[in-house]
Amino acid sequence: MMIPNAMVDEWYPVGLFSQLDVSGRKTALMGEPVEVGRDAEGTVRVTSADGRMLPVCVRYGHIWTSLGEPRKPLFAIPEADQLGRRLVDVGVVRVRCSPLRAVENFLDIAHFPFVHTDILGAEPHTEVQNYKVDIREDEDEVWATQVKFYQPQAAKSASGGVTTEYMYRVPAPTCSILYKTCPPRPGEWDVITLFVQPLAEDLCDVWPWMALFDDETSMTDLIHFQQTIFVQDRSILENQIPRLLPLDPGMEIPTRADLTSVAYRRWLKRHGYTYGAQLVAQ
């Protein structure tokens, strides 16, 4: 099957490496069934329905593949190799929404007081101060920096409210990395990612993953904190109309707080990354 879309040559997560056993995993990528398994030597294999061996890469806790021919290796997260970080496999959550809507929601902070009430935000601290957004031409990535927000409980390790600083990075159309000030280690950034596997234009499997400095909290509590946050978002994502992300500027109204989303949509459009997008208003 041909997907008339530049996104076909990108890498996508198709499973947790730690969860792959001999029985393998049947899943899908952009409407095409794929099977993840291991051969006799233990090497990870991903095959398409027509028997093609697809490119494979195992990184950041996940198995990655592509239906096309990736022109570059999977994006780098240098912090992932830093000593002393806890690497957290959060596990999959399926959402009936566009993979691009899932990423856009991850880039948004203004919803914290209403959707992640008393955890990532709370009234009356709803103001989004100005921050910087740019599309970095060398890396070809969307970046938002100097993002600040008041949070009642920014992380499992946080006690009491703090103003947290964030940086957001979009290195691939369905992946985003969030860098967040790290309460136990001032000067370092916690890394929280959202890896989205597009099953269809309006259905995705979301694989959050984290690399944190936190020696106190149990692994299970770290997983549950992130699952809590994402499942709070899920009921929003399943109720946005239309399901596809509108790239027509007339369809939705952004404000200054939405500059990251504006840049993300512009970047998607520029590259023809439109799997899960709606180009004209319907």
Binding site: V115, T117, D118, H125, T126, Q129, Q227, Q232, R234
Partner: peptide, 21 residues
């Protein structure tokens, strides 16, 4: 629990806080 949102209407509209942090 996650998936059940707060009933924000049970709380009065807060006074806006524009002073920054």
């Amino acid at each position: 629990m996650p998936g059940i949102h707060r009933l924000h209407d049970l709380k009065p509209e807060p006074l806006p806080e524009t002073s920054g942090f």
